[in-house]
Each structure stands twice: as C-alpha cells, then as structure tokens.
C-alpha cells in the first residue's frame, strides 16, 4: 500500500509536525514500507488468537483512592513560558 502526498500531509498535521515539502516523497516511501510490513502480518491467520492489549501478560495494579500530591504550583510554573493568576498561558486557541 503506497501513501500519496496528501496522506503524508494529513498524518503530519494530525501529529502537529512541520515537514519539508521536498522530503515528502521520502516520508511517503518509508511510511508505505511500514504499512507493507503490517500488510504482510495481516496475512497471518489469527482466528483462534485472542488479541492482547499489552505485550506483558500481567494485570493492572490499582491504587487506593487517596490524595498524595500537594500543591507544587510555584515549582511547576517556573519552567512555563508564561503564567498569570496561576494559569498557564498559551497562544489563543479560538478566534
């Protein structure tokens, strides 16, 4: 299965990655070869095999419902580019 230019652009947009126009053919071919591998795997008969959600055959440990974190806002916000009134500021997301 070969990806075309617009599909590569869509995948990049969904991942919010900026890509160089002239690199698109290269990406298209690498990504297509990954899909080729998947296609090859698809041809294996898995009728009697239960899908695994995780490579480890283990089950999730649960924690008790207790508050264990304290307010560390000042420390965390030291690395934020912009804060105000305790909020993290980001470029405006709606018009």
């Amino acid at each position: 299965m070969a990806l075309d230019k617009s599909e590569v652009e869509k995948i990049a947009h969904l991942a919010r990655i900026a890509i160089n126009e002239d690199k698109i053919p290269e990406y298209a071919s690498s990504l297509s070869s990954i899909l080729g591998l998947v296609e090859q795997m698809q041809s294996t008969n898995t009728d009697d095999i239960e899908p695994m959600a995780h490579p480890l055959d283990a089950t999730q440990r649960l924690r008790d419902d207790a508050v264990t974190e304290s307010n560390q806002r000042d420390a965390y916000q030291k690395i934020a580019p912009a804060t105000e009134d305790g909020l993290y500021l980001v470029p405006k997301v709606i018009d």
């Binding site: 305790g86 909020l87 993290y88 980001v90 470029p91 405006k92 997301v93 709606i94």
Partner: peptide, 15 residues
C-alpha cells in the same frame, strides 16, 4: 479548562 477571556490575547489554562 481553557479560559478565553483576555489574557493579553492569550488563553489561560487551568489543569
């Protein structure tokens, strides 16, 4: 929560 009122043209985020 996103707060869109004016923070100098930016959006405030409360997590």
């Amino acid at each position: 929560k996103s707060l869109h009122e004016d923070y100098h043209g930016m959006t405030g985020i409360d997590l």
